[in-house]
Design a binder for these strands. Structure first.
Lengths: 333, 333
DNA sequence: CTGTTAGCGCGTTCAC
DNA sequence: GTGAACGCGCTAACAG
């Protein structure tokens, strides 16, 4: 089934069919309905490649992701797909295996010109040190934002969550529970969210006058949490009152090490994974699906709005939800 | 940069460049090197859309997935991407939101002809009741297999895991630990793995002479596990000796309900999520990444081997790994 | 409002 | 071994 064939069957020309397909305004209601009927009858779908070649859109959105946690990845992808498919589009996914990989993948995607636009999920912050590649398609940053210094990169649209607010609420809660000494097991500092949460923790701790606090970097997965517990906090006498972990995984690592002594110490995570709920662990919920949906919507809007190229960068900042559970509540410990 | 431009720069014709690109045999060594040099110098990459339109390959592999657990989804996708990118290919991902959706998505993907081949991750079993859509591109089933009745569907390549073996080992282990009454919280029966595990449990239980066993269907996520515990096993006196859950999530739901009484009862999961390890829960590890890699490799082989269309269906069955932990070991309970 | 014409970049016959 | 011509299915001018 081709456009040409549809035209024949509808007793019209290819152009007319094409116009119907692209929602051209100046077309008579009658012709449009007639064409649509034929299209419907034969389940016709335009060939994306021909369309792309002729200068139109492909309906393909590129998605670049770093090797992040599966839960986060999957939910964001789901969000992206939801938004893309609402407009009959599809996503082309590539996953970077290392840091260098990311910029290389980006350049290849940009060069091969097979997508209408590109969404960068959680790029390693190093990326912003390199110059913004020359591009003729719009880019959207998902779960990341360039530092003030990276001027060119800051022209891009971005979608992030309000880490600072969540962290402030979390620290305040711990203080209210009477915890005096709080340790933040921060994430790898080449990850945007990790950097943000670290900074937010430090600021909140100072601002709210936490009597004693420490920050340790580089925690991403369970083993990182375990490792730190074994090396730095092997004896209960060394323990603080509370651990604020970069994410749930790290928190689980901590829990595994202090097992049997949960009563004495608060542990909080981040991501609100299903397991956090089961374990009764306090955690910050990230709107992952929404993160994806919003990113794709932003990209699609840039694409549909041809004048948008000149529009200023938009920054969406989504809200998180703090789930307080027994792992941090003194009364219920 | 187009093929035509490369031809000009190399002082030859478009056809020659095209032949070099497609590894045509009858081309002089000298011409080939010359062309390759120019290509390299200008970082030329052929336009995928033009290539596709002219009848060639696009390097795009379609991936259809149902709305499965994020961990599984993410890891399989990763595997697919690894295998695809090894051959400079990319994956186009679509996620079905409901059951009907799946077959509709499949048809659209097939119709719009935008991918070289298609990988179906965990399609709802209902799909196999409908006729195999007419197709001119190869299909591979990932984590699923059609029933014997669906003849046409059984012509497709597939990659699955050996659920039966894992389940047998698991039941044997529980028996050896002295458990007399085992309950299987089976998954939704329109999911291949759920059906397989259910059947395998029943067979193993009979074959190994488990004194008492029951099977309850429809468990997919934590709340399902919780629900069943509250309705059917609200009092400890009703508890069996062991629960074999469809997956880790369901198992967590059970654990949450029997909290504080873990000593009295064994609970096993499936998927070996990181949390299972932290909690010390016995679980079966699925080779998720490998599942994806193998699927993509199979598809790519069909694509490269033009004579393969006639080849018989291949069925890869991957092995699982049983991780025995304290949640099922009597001595350590 | 609609039909006609000309490519988009490439693979693939054909001839030479 | 190489080049010329054609067409893949579609969009985008240009006429009418």
């Amino acid at each position: 089934m081709t456009l040409r064939r549809i035209a024949e069957l509808a007793g019209t020309s290819k152009s007319t069919v094409s116009r119907v397909l692209t929602n051209h305004p100046r077309i008579s209601q009658r012709t449009r309905e007639k064409v649509l009927a034929v299209i419907e009858e034969h389940h016709y779908r335009p060939n994306l490649f021909a369309r792309a070649l002729a200068g139109g859109r492909t309906g393909l959105l590129g998605v670049l992701s770093s090797n992040i946690s599966s839960g986060f990845f999957a939910e964001v992808i789901r969000g992206l797909d939801i938004a893309a498919s609402r407009q009959r589009g599809h996503i082309v996914v590539s996953i970077a295996h290392g840091n260098d990989d990311y910029s290389q993948l980006l350049n290849e995607m940009l060069a091969s010109g097979q997508v209408d636009g590109l969404i960068l999920i959680d790029p390693p912050l190093d990326l912003f040190n390199s110059p913004l590649p020359e591009k003729h398609i719009p880019l959207v940053l998902c779960a990341s934002q360039p530092p003030d210094g990276a001027r060119a990169w800051r022209e891009l649209d971005s979608v992030t969550v309000d880490n600072a607010k969540a962290m402030r609420d979390l620290v305040r809660h711990l203080l209210e529970q009477g915890h005096q000494h709080i340790v933040h097991l921060a994430g790898p500092q080449n990850i945007y969210d990790a950097q943000q949460r670290r900074a937010a923790f430090e600021e909140a701790a100072k601002q709210l006058h936490v009597p004693q606090f420490d920050i340790l970097d580089g925690h991403l997965v369970q083993t990182d949490g375990r490792e730190t517990m074994r090396s730095r906090f092997s004896k209960p006498s060394q323990w603080p009152d509370a651990f604020v972990a970069f994410n749930d995984s790290v928190a689980f690592g901590v829990l595994a090490e202090i097992n049997g002594a949960k009563q004495r110490i608060a542990v909080t995570g981040w991501d609100n994974s299903p397991t956090a709920e089961v374990l009764g662990m306090t955690s910050v919920e990230m709107p992952m699906t929404e993160l994806g949906e919003t990113s794709a919507d932003m990209l699609l809007e840039r694409l549909s709005n041809s004048t948008a190229a000149a529009n200023p960068a938009r920054r969406a900042i989504l809200d998180t939800t703090l789930h307080l559970r027994t792992s941090s509540k003194t009364g219920e410990l």
